[in-house]
């Protein structure tokens, strides 16, 4: 729980300080991140990281998001989206985007962890926003409650991501992707940043502990072995009906043909 209270304090420090001191907020943020992520990272390392990130950004991102991440034409402004957003979008391969279709899909990431961290640090240095998290600091196994997580998932997530977390259709060809096989930190970051069509689930509406419960449930659903045989895609009655017709009735008709054929 210690991590969570710290994390929370940090998250709400941001908006409050926004009016007063942008610089101070940035420092608070860096400090918090330094403690939570890489305790050994010194201030000068931080500055190099930001510089490195700025360079990658200029090369790979600025054509859409503008030279100073202020947004340009196709790409939105990234000022204030925070490191969490960058980590989610870039580390899951969604950014940089290959084709500007309705849906920005998950793919092999273009940048490695170091580069993602640099980019995140750079974007975070522009204005405070949700901080990136690491898999290790999310103690979902300890603090999450699976049954509660299922309940929350059905209430907040299943309408888009399907009851079994397999994903589902949105309007005009967009879709909510499957939540199976997604890294824990990316699930968390998606909830706090609301990537693409997904809404934001803020830390008071869905508390950090509740988010860990949701993750625990998702991770269970992901690893649960089949209890009743082949899952048939876990998408419900449509595939079941297909299997009933093709395999069930198909087999039986096959037998019926044999049964009524004349023996020689």
């Amino acid at each position: 729980m210690r991590f969570i209270s710290k994390y929370r304090r940090h998250r709400f420090a941001g908006p409050l300080l926004l009016l007063g001191a942008l610089l101070f907020a940035g420092l608070t943020y860096s400090a918090a991140q330094a403690v939570t992520e890489q305790a050994t990272l010194s201030q000068s390392d931080k500055a190099t990281l930001i510089a490195e990130g700025k360079e990658i950004f200029a090369r790979g991102c600025s054509s859409c998001h503008g030279l100073n991440a202020e947004g340009a034409g196709v790409g939105p402004s990234l000022i204030g989206v925070g490191a969490a957003s960058v980590d989610f979008q870039v580390a899951t391969g969604r950014m940089p985007v290959a084709d500007m279709s309705q849906q920005i899909a998950r793919k092999e990431p273009v940048y490695n962890d170091q580069e993602v961290a640099a980019l995140a640090a750079y974007v975070a240095s522009l204005a405070p926003g949700p901080a990136a998290v690491t898999n290790e600091e999310l103690a979902w196994e300890r603090d999450g409650n699976m049954a509660q997580g299922g309940e929350l998932f059905r209430n907040n997530c299943a309408m888009c991501h399907n009851l079994a977390g397999q994903g589902g259709a949105l309007t005009q060809g967009k879709y909510a992707p499957t939540v199976m096989g997604v890294e824990v930190k990316h699930i968390y970051e998606a909830m706090i940043t609301g990537p693409q069509a997904m809404p934001v689930f803020s830390e008071t509406i869905l508390t950090p502990q509740e988010k860990l419960s949701v993750i625990k449930w998702i991770k269970h659903a992901e690893t649960e072995p089949q209890l009743g045989g082949a899952a048939l895609g876990r998408v419900g009655p449509v595939t079941e009906g297909l299997v009933g017709w093709v395999l069930g009735l198909g087999l039986l008709i096959g037998v019926a043909v044999w049964l009524t054929a004349k023996a020689r």
């Binding site: 309940e151 809404p199 689930f201 509406i205």
Partner: peptide
Amino acid sequence: VTDPGDRPIRPSDLEVGGVAQ
């Protein structure tokens, strides 16, 4: 109040782009 959880909600709890059941 939040569902589930039954916690009352302040406007500041909800960010732009956010939802609450």
